[in-house]
């Protein structure tokens, strides 16, 4: 049984505080749905737990089975059992999926994985995610569609078998069938490993497949409501505005970049 504990977490990005004292505990086997309007800190939380250098933890603690996660390098966090399925996975030309995954598996065990065992495991994951058989030989996420990138994140999760997997809008870019395939793979992996899950998604259908045991709503850098799966249903039918009234919080509206007018140049105005 493993435990991921986050206490009073404050995180800033470029001097702007995004998380303002967040508390959350996840145990093995639990499935936590993390919801909230865009721009309120969901992805920031996941990135901070994984150790993305763009995010600065200014206060608070994260522990994994009592060990200080914040004192670990990014790779150490992964080896300790954390996994982040990213919203925008990197494209890395020149590095094949199989080389990458083999290196990642070997990085966390004393003895390198045998080639036959590796191929067997990878084939199983590729088949489960119904991906093209040549995935192993393709460069990492290079030329992948949005959906393929997300499925590839789950392939990696299945191969690395983390204690806790964080999935950041892993359902975006997936069509209806792919959503079912990915959900089945996540469910199967969790049943096999008993990993804890922290899932960020905007869509109730994804949560219907994954059946969260806990649900939280994150507003302005704090978790303001926690409950069970019924919270997902409520958000799906009523949106987030009720939270402002019931919990006296203000939803952060995401800054939308406005198009910048470059003005008009060399235009002859009549009469000018």
């Amino acid at each position: 049984m493993s435990e991921l504990v986050i206490k009073n977490l404050h995180v800033s990005v470029e001097e702007k505080e995004i998380l303002k004292g967040l508390d959350l505990t996840i145990n093995s086997g639990e499935r936590h749905a993390l919801m909230g309007p865009n721009g309120n800190g969901k992805s920031t939380l996941l990135a901070a737990i994984m150790g993305n250098p763009k995010y600065t933890v200014t206060e608070g603690s994260i522990t994994l089975d009592g060990k200080d996660v914040l004192a670990m390098e990014v790779d150490e966090r992964s080896k300790a059992g954390l996994f982040l399925g990213m919203q925008y996975p990197s494209v890395i030309s020149g590095v094949t999926n199989s080389d990458f995954l083999r290196s990642a598996i070997n990085a966390r065990q004393e003895k390198p994985i045998g080639l036959f065992k590796f191929i067997k495991q990878m084939d199983k994951a590729i088949q489960k995610l119904e991906m093209k058989p040549d995935l192993a030989h393709r460069f990492l996420n290079d030329g992948f569609s949005g959906g393929e990138k997300k499925r590839n994140e789950i392939v990696q999760m299945m191969m690395l078998k983390p204690k806790f997997a964080m999935l950041d809008e892993i359902d975006s870019g997936l069509d209806v069938d792919a959503l079912r395939i990915v959900s089945d793979a996540i469910n199967e992996c969790q049943e096999e490993t008993q990993m804890g899950l922290l899932i960020v998604s905007h869509y109730a259908r994804f949560y219907e497949y994954l059946k969260p045991t806990h649900a939280h709503i994150l507003v302005d850098g704090r978790i303001v409501v926690s409950g069970d799966a019924s919270l997902v249903e409520k958000v799906d039918t009523e949106g987030y505005e009720w939270i402002e009234k019931e919990y006296q919080v203000k939803l952060v509206k995401e800054d939308k970049k406005q198009p910048i007018s470059l003005g008009s140049c060399a235009v002859n105005k009549k009469g000018a």
Partner: peptide, 9 residues
């Protein structure tokens, strides 16, 4: 960061 997040130093 992506590679490190999978356990590579």
């Amino acid at each position: 960061y992506y590679l490190q997040s999978r356990g590579l130093t």
